[in-house]
């Protein structure tokens, strides 16, 4: 198991290297950092001066190697816009994103697991149909539109929730719901499919033949098997919520990573963009690894490897 984890971590580092290469190259080809640093209204001479001062006249591979060496030592560079270390800028924004992502993830699980279970147990009844409609609507509902509708109803019409910001827990309610509804359909449909599949299996019949109560049959014998395929997908969803909340954070002006990324993109603040992408990629690698470990814990057949 340890060897497996180490191997996976090694692969994860390789993947992140590849991601960083792509992102560094793309951003540096697409934008001219010298122009950003020189600021708006700078003359061609100013830009040229900045280019030489910051070493942007050197080829991209050289700059990439230098950047990578710095990153390896924990130095993510300096934000062009805020003129502060990128690490500080990012660290400041991480808590909001973590809180939002985890709240949304918890909410998504709290919705999709019981709903999927119920729909699976009552296949082809009105409960199942209703859950399916709920999932279909969620899948087709653009996050930003759902966010706007939520704003119209709960902020504008009812005045229950604050419109934007991330200062109190009330600021997190609407964004979490919006983000959770995005992830719920996938998780719910997977749970439903898993439950239907597992309830047909022989060991469920065995459990019932032992006289176990229906609740125990479902929660102990069916659920653990039914959620096995869910784990890795849920990890990806969590990664998406931590990294993909950019739309939600921007709409609600929450001072998290996503909003930071949006700001940095509009200002061509390349070091921050690179750092955020790398951080999210790192979170993804760790989450998928965590999912594999969790799966091995849930399913003894995987432990032998």
């Amino acid at each position: 198991m340890l060897a497996y984890v180490l191997k996976r971590l090694g692969l994860g580092i390789l993947v992140m290297l590849a991601v960083s290469t792509i992102v560094f190259t793309l951003t540096n080809v697409a934008a001219d950092p010298a122009r950003t640093i020189a600021g708006e209204g700078a003359t061609a001479a100013d830009v040229e001066a900045a280019r030489i001062a910051y070493g942007f006249d050197r080829p991209i591979p050289v700059r990439y190697a230098e950047w990578l060496a710095n990153v390896a030592q924990g130095d993510l560079g300096t934000s062009y816009r805020q003129r502060r270390p990128v690490a500080d800028v990012v660290a400041e924004r991480l808590p909001v994103t973590l809180a939002l992502g985890l709240a949304a993830f918890a909410l998504a699980l709290a919705l999709s697991l019981p709903l999927g279970l119920l729909a699976g147990l009552r296949e082809n009844t009105w409960v199942d149909r209703l859950a399916l409609v709920f999932a279909l609507v969620g899948q087709a509902m653009p996050t930003f539109w759902f966010a706007l509708l939520g704003m119209v109803i709960f902020v504008v019409k009812l005045g229950w929730l604050p419109a934007s910001g991330s200062d109190t827990w009330r600021h997190f309610v609407l964004p979490s719901v919006v983000l959770a509804y995005y992830a719920t359909p996938t998780l719910m449909r997977l749970t439903r499919a898993g439950v239907i599949e597992v309830m047909k299996s022989d060991y469920i019949r065995t459990a019932r033949a032992k006289g176990l109560r229906p609740g125990k049959v479902v929660l102990k014998h069916a659920m653990r098997n039914a959620i096995l395929p869910l784990v890795s997908v849920a990890a990806v969803q969590l990664g998406f919520m931590l990294g993909g909340s950019i739309v939600v954070e921007t709409i609600f002006a929450m001072r998290g990573l996503g909003y930071l990324a949006w700001e940095s993109i509009t200002f061509s603040d390349l070091p921050v963009i690179q750092a955020v992408v790398l951080l999210i990629a790192g979170i993804y690698v760790l989450l998928t690894l965590g999912a594999d470990i969790l799966n091995a814990w849930l399913d003894p057949r995987l432990r032998m490897g």
């Binding site: 992102v23 793309l26 990294g243 950019i246 963009i273 990629a281 993804y284």
Partner: peptide
């Protein structure tokens, strides 16, 4: 590698 990249973010950038 592709799966590890956050799509919206990279697309936006």
């Amino acid at each position: 590698t592709r799966l590890t990249m956050p799509v919206i973010l990279v697309a936006l950038a």
